[in-house]
Simulated scan of single mutants.
Amino acid sequence: MNKAFVREAPAGEDAGEDEEDEAGVGAAKLPAGTKNYMTVAGYATLRAEFEQLVKVERPSIVQVVSWAAGNGDRSENGDYIYGKKRLREIDRRIRFLSKRLDSAVVVDPAAQENRDQVFFAATVVVCDVDGSEATYKIVGIDEANPGAGLISWISPLARALLKAREGDAVRFASPGGVRELEVIEIRYE
């Protein structure tokens, strides 16, 4: 068989353990040796997706595939072929979500005792040197959405903000070069 049709893992890696493959394109990998921190809302969102896939979508697709398999020739049966493909995608996502939920360390921002410093799940208002303000919330890697102000705790900005206090200036490397921000406000919501 031609090697172009065989998916092989790079030397020293097991193809079954590739987290990006499990989750699909765009899934962030946890750095080795770190915990999978999540906010309460982030955990609930992943849990709801897991439940939807297991209790609604997968049984529905299994029913369609079963019906299509009973129609005879499977080689030209679109319902069967696409149903099996979708079933593999759902099973891959279920495995990924199951691993992420099992390893999750849920952090409730309301339980944070030291509220004068930036820690995981903090909402931080910062000011740029030009005077423009921005608000960021430090969240888990599965919850990150930079456009909405939700930044992953492993991002350069979040790492720079961690342990900062109101009035502190933090520097971090951004794609546009080194930036400096001043911490204006810290909230735990």
Score class of each variant (00 low, 15 high):
1 M>R: 14
2 N>W: 15
2 N>I: 14
3 K>L: 06
5 F>P: 00
7 R>I: 11
7 R>S: 11
8 E>D: 02
8 E>C: 04
9 A>Y: 14
10 P>W: 11
17 E>D: 06
19 E>S: 10
19 E>W: 15
19 E>M: 12
21 D>Q: 10
22 E>D: 14
26 G>K: 08
26 G>W: 05
27 A>T: 12
28 A>H: 11
28 A>D: 14
34 T>L: 01
36 N>A: 06
37 Y>W: 06
38 M>G: 01
40 V>S: 01
41 A>Q: 07
42 G>D: 07
46 L>H: 02
46 L>V: 04
48 A>V: 02
48 A>L: 03
53 L>G: 11
53 L>S: 06
54 V>I: 14
60 S>K: 15
60 S>T: 15
61 I>M: 12
71 N>M: 12
71 N>A: 08
71 N>I: 06
72 G>T: 13
72 G>D: 11
76 E>A: 13
78 G>T: 08
78 G>H: 05
79 D>F: 15
79 D>H: 15
79 D>I: 06
81 I>Q: 03
86 R>Y: 03
89 E>K: 15
90 I>R: 13
91 D>C: 01
92 R>V: 02
97 L>H: 14
98 S>E: 15
98 S>M: 10
101 L>R: 14
101 L>P: 14
102 D>F: 11
104 A>D: 05
105 V>N: 04
106 V>T: 10
106 V>E: 01
108 D>T: 14
109 P>L: 10
110 A>C: 13
111 A>Y: 01
112 Q>S: 03
116 D>W: 04
117 Q>H: 06
118 V>K: 00
118 V>F: 01
119 F>E: 01
119 F>M: 03
119 F>D: 01
120 F>D: 03
122 A>I: 08
122 A>M: 05
125 V>C: 04
127 C>Q: 13
132 S>P: 00
134 A>F: 00
135 T>H: 09
137 K>R: 14
140 G>Q: 09
140 G>Y: 03
140 G>V: 09
141 I>E: 05
142 D>K: 05
144 A>E: 02
146 P>Q: 03
150 L>H: 02
151 I>A: 05
152 S>L: 00
153 W>H: 06
156 P>W: 02
158 A>K: 09
159 R>E: 06
161 L>A: 03
162 L>K: 12
163 K>E: 09
164 A>I: 13
167 G>M: 05
168 D>N: 12
170 V>M: 11
171 R>A: 12
173 A>Y: 12
173 A>I: 13
174 S>L: 07
175 P>D: 15
175 P>K: 15
176 G>D: 15
177 G>F: 08
179 R>I: 07
181 L>M: 04
182 E>P: 01
188 Y>L: 03
188 Y>I: 04
